[in-house]
């Protein structure tokens, strides 16, 4: 039994050690094992479905020019790509995710935030999920609003058509299915923060005892 409980200590290194061994399995078997290690976390009773014709991204709040972007208009903004690691606060990690999307500075140039705006509130189509980041945080070099993952348009379960990507923070700050970005005076508690999670979810430095 003690050997069993100690698994909490040795599980991570063992898992890392045997994961490459999974490559040796026949592809049929491998298809059953979740590749990459993504898990799909949602909080609502249904998963938003993306309709390219009707979808709009609303950017409003403390801005000089509130805007609604269609999917095509979003894709027409300056495109950027990056490879980064995705960390979930529950302990799983996906390395080398290839994202493509728009930097927030390019998105915000569009709407001209007012001087009193210091944070962005991301509202998901997955009601009631939302979260917010400060203006400084969204200007980190690898933060973006992503619409492509691993060379394909963002898949439904990953937040189609657009999600926040901020690799320095745990996944719960990387809001999926973003449909509204509201400029606000200061950050607000998001879905998990209302349940006691840290507002600044720095990977490795937050949500600790």
């Amino acid at each position: 039994m003690a050997g069993g409980i100690s698994a909490f200590a040795w599980a991570s290194p063992v898992w890392r050690a045997i994961r490459p061994a999974a490559e040796l399995l026949p592809s049929g078997v491998r298809a059953l094992i979740p590749s990459g290690g993504w898990r799909i976390y949602t909080v609502a009773d249904s998963m938003p479905r993306f309709d390219p014709k009707r979808w709009r991204l609303r950017i409003d709040g403390l801005v000089a020019r509130p805007r609604e972007l269609s999917y095509d208009e979003l894709l027409a903004l300056p495109r950027t790509e990056q490879v980064s690691t995705f960390h979930c606060v529950t302990g799983w990690t996906v390395e080398n995710v290839r994202w493509a999307g728009v930097r927030f500075r390019d998105l915000l140039a569009f709407v001209k935030p007012m001087p009193q705006a210091h944070a962005l509130r991301f509202v998901s189509s997955e009601v009631p999920y939302e979260d917010s980041l400060t203006l400084a945080q969204v200007q980190l070099v690898d933060a973006m609003l992503a619409y492509e993952m691993d060379g394909r348009p963002l898949r439904r379960e990953h937040g189609a058509p657009a999600r926040v990507v901020i690799p320095e923070m745990y996944g719960y700050k990387n809001v999926k299915w973003v449909e509204r970005i509201e400029l606000v005076p200061h950050p607000l508690d998001g879905f998990w923060e209302k349940l006691g999670y840290d507002r600044d979810a720095w990977v490795g430095r937050s949500n600790r005892a």
Binding site: A7, F8, A9, A11, S12, V14, W15, V89, T90, G91, W92, L195, G196, Y197, D198, N207, R208, A209
Partner: peptide, 19 residues
């Protein structure tokens, strides 16, 4: 419980459960 009290969330819990 870790979802309710972050002091009880350990990085390996999920790996143990899945393993």
């Amino acid at each position: 419980y870790g979802e309710r009290d972050t002091r009880f969330r350990f990085a390996s819990t999920l790996l143990v459960h899945d393993g």
